[in-house]
Design a protein around this nucleic acid. Structure first.
Length: 521
DNA sequence: TTCGTGACTTAGAAAGCCGGAC
DNA sequence: GTCCGGCTTTCTAAGTCACGAA
C-alpha cells in the first residue's frame, strides 16, 4: 500500500469505554425469581429493548440469544425464551419511554443540552490526537457490549458480544509521550507504536474473534491523502480501460482454463460492477461476489441470455439479466459444474488483481466500482443542461439524480422506508393542490398581480414535481454510500462552479469536511 | 503458491437531530 | 411555536487487499 506520510508523533488520551448503570433488576426463570449480576442484567435489558422488532421474531436470533443468556445465568442451555419473564425490566423500559414522551419542551431541551455537553466534554478529552504536530480528529468510543446484529442469515445473530475492558485494548502511541492513565487500578493490554498505521487503538472482538479498531478520522489530512490516491487511481483507470478490456478479451480465449476463468471474472467486475467476492468463513452469512459465484447463482438460457441471482455484501439481493459476448457465455457454460460448486474454483481475488495489474500497475478489482460510479456521475452532470440561471432546487435535483446514477451503478439498495408510500402520496397531493390553485388564479384573478402570481405558482409546481420524481426514483436506493465513498468530489466541485452553485449544498457537514481537499484541486 | 489474518474501506440500519410546514 | 418527517450522523458489520509464513 502506498504510504505518503509516515507517523513520527502520535499523541492521544486513550479511549472511552461506555459504562452500564445496573438497576438491580430481577427476572423470573420458570417462575423462579433470579437476581442478576450487572452483566446478566445488561444482557437482559438489551433483549427487552429489542422486543417488538422483527429481529426477535427470527427463531435463530431468539435461540442464539437464549442459549447464550442461559449459559451466563447457569441455567439449562436448551431453555426457551418463554421460560424467561422479563416483565420487571419491560415495565421499567416502558416507564422510561413514557417519561420521555411526557416531558415538557423545556425538559426535553435541557436533557438534549446535557447530553450534548457530555458528548462535547468526551470529545474534547478523547476525540483529538496530535499527529506530526497537527491536531486531528480521531475515533475514541469503544464498542459497548451488545446483542450481535449480524446481517442476513449470519449464524451468530442474537448472540451476546461481551464487554471490552481496558485490559483488552492495545494503544498506538509514539514513544515520546506517557501512557494515558486508565481509571483506578486498570491497565491497558499493551502500548505499541506503529509508524505506518492509521489506528489509535485496537482490541480483539470476543464474539467473532476479529480485530476491531478506532481510527484517525476522515477529516484528518493524513487520512485524506489516501482518499485522494484512491480517486486518482480510478482516474488512472480511465486512461487504461481500453487496454484492460483488450487484455480481458484475450484472456477469455486463453488455452489455460485458469486464465479463462480470471478473464471471465474480470469481465463481470467491469461490466456488472460486481465485487470480487473473496472466500468467507463458514461462521458468516452465505454471500458471494464474482469469484465465489456458484452454479445456482447463474441461469443461462439457450438464446445466450444470462441471469444472475445471488446475495451480495450485507446479504443484499442482486439480480441482473445480461446478454454478454458469446465467448463469455461459452466460458460460463464450461465452468459451471454441480449447482453447489463454485463456478470459478481455484480463482481468488489475488489472481484477479494480479491479472489486472499486468496492464495497469496497482489496479485492483474494487477500483472498477469507484471508476464506474464516478463516471456515471460525470456523464449525468455533463448531459444535464443545467444553466447558472436555473434555480437552486433544480441544481440540487440534478446533483441528487447524478448521485442516484452512482447508487444504481453500485447496487446500493435499502429496504423501503416505513412511511415511503405515504410520503410519496403527500408529495403528489401537494403537487395537485398547487396545480388546482394555479388554475383558479388563471380563471378568476383579474388583479394587476395576476401574471406575477401565475409565475410564482408555476415555479412551485416545478419544484413539487421534481420532488415527487426524486421520491419515486430514489425509492429503494441508498445514496449515502456512493456519495461518501465512490463519487470523486472534484466532479461535483467542478460542475458546481460551472453552474454557479455552492458545492457544499450537495454534501452534509461531515462530508464537506471530509472532502475539503477537493475544493482546490 | 496457498493460507491465514491484520489493516483498512465500504455498507445499510437505526438513532438522533433539525428545520420547514402548519 | 410546535411537531414530525426526513436528512444527517452514528454505529458496527462486512467487505477488500496486502503481507508474512509455511
Amino acid at each position: 500500500m502506498l504510504q505518503t506520510t509516515r507517523i513520527k508523533q502520535l499523541i492521544h488520551n486513550g479511549v472511552l469505554i461506555p459504562t452500564y448503570e445496573p438497576q438491580s433488576f430481577t427476572i423470573r426463570y420458570k417462575g423462579k425469581e433470579l437476581s442478576l449480576t450487572p452483566e446478566q442484567e445488561e444482557i437482559a435489558v438489551a433483549w427487552v429493548k429489542k422486543l417488538g422488532t422483527d429481529y426477535v421474531k427470527d427463531p435463530v436470533f431468539a435461540r442464539n440469544f437464549v442459549e447464550n443468556f442461559s449459559k451466563t445465568l447457569g441455567v439449562e442451555t436448551n431453555s426457551k425464551i418463554e421460560d424467561f419473564d422479563f416483565s420487571e425490566i419491560q415495565r421499567w423500559v416502558e416507564q422510561e419511554k413514557i417519561k420521555k414522551e411526557n416531558m415538557s419542551r423545556e425538559e426535553r431541551k435541557a436533557l438534549a443540552e446535557a447530553r450534548k455537553k457530555i458528548r462535547e466534554a468526551n470529545k474534547e478529552k478523547y476525540g483529538y490526537a496530535v499527529l506530526n504536530g497537527e491536531r486531528v480528529e480521531i475515533g475514541y468510543t469503544v464498542e459497548p457490549p451488545s446483542i450481535f446484529m449480524g446481517r442476513g442469515k449470519h449464524p451468530f445473530r442474537g448472540r451476546w458480544k461481551p464487554r471490552v475492558g481496558y485490559g483488552d485494548i492495545i494503544l498506538n502511541l509514539s514513544p515520546d509521550v506517557p501512557t494515558p492513565t486508565p481509571p483506578d487500578g486498570k491497565h491497558w493490554k499493551e502500548r505499541v507504536f506503529d509508524p505506518n498505521a492509521m489506528w489509535i487503538a485496537k482490541w480483539q472482538d470476543k464474539l467473532g474473534g476479529e480485530i476491531k479498531y478506532l481510527w484517525i478520522a476522515d477529516t484528518a489530512r493524513f487520512k485524506q491523502e489516501r482518499e485522494i490516491e484512491k480517486f486518482n487511481k480510478a482516474r488512472e483507470l480511465n486512461e487504461f480501460v481500453e487496454r484492460i478490456r483488450q487484455h480481458i478479451k484475450e484472456g477469455l480465449f486463453s488455452e489455460d482454463i485458469t486464465q479463462r476463468k480470471i478473464a471471465t471474472v474480470s469481465y463481470l467486475i467491469d461490466n456488472l460492477k460486481m465485487r470480487v467476492g473473496d472466500e468467507k468463513d463458514k461462521d458468516e452469512a452465505d454471500t458471494v461476489g464474482a469469484v465465489t459465484l456458484r452454479g445456482t447463482h447463474i441461469k443461462i438460457d439457450p438464446s445466450g441470455q444470462v441471469k444472475f441471482d445471488f446475495l451480495g455484501k450485507d446479504s443484499v439481493k442482486w439480480v441482473r439479466v445480461i446478454r454478454p459476448p458469446t465467448q463469455v457465455v461459452s466460458n460460463l457454460n464450461s465452468f459451471i459444474g454441480k449447482p453447489r460448486a463454485p463456478i470459478f474454483s481455484g480463482v481468488r481475488s489475488e489472481h484477479v488483481n494480479a491479472f489486472l495489474g499486468q496492464v495497469m500497475p496497482g489496479l485492483t478489482a474494487k477500483v472498477f466500482r469507484t471508476y464506474h460510479a464516478s463516471k456515471s456521475v460525470k456523464e449525468y452532470l455533463a448531459n444535464s443542461k443545467i444553466l447558472p440561471k436555473d434555480s437552486d432546487f433544480e441544481k440540487k435535483y440534478v446533483a441528487k439524480m447524478a448521485n442516484l446514477e452512482a447508487a444504481i451503478t453500485c447496487h446500493h439498495k435499502r429496504k423501503l422506508p416505513k412511511n415511503w408510500k405515504e410520503s410519496l402520496k403527500n408529495k403528489v397531493n401537494k403537487l395537485k393542490t398547487l396545480k388546482a390553485k394555479l388554475n383558479e388564479v388563471k380563471e378568476k384573478s383579474r388583479s394587476s398581480s395576476r401574471a406575477k402570481r401565475i409565475k410564482s405558482f408555476q415555479e412551485r409546481i416545478r419544484t413539487a414535481r421534481l420532488n415527487v420524481n426524486l421520491t419515486k426514483t430514489t425509492r429503494d436506493y441508498n445514496l449515502g454510500t456512493s456519495l461518501k465513498s465512490y463519487i470523486d468530489p472534484r466532479l461535483y466541485v467542478k460542475w458546481a462552479r460551472e453552474v454557479s452553485y455552492d458545492w457544499k449544498k450537495i454534501y452534509p457537514k461531515t462530508l464537506q469536511r471530509k472532502f475539503a481537499w477537493a475544493e482546490d484541486r
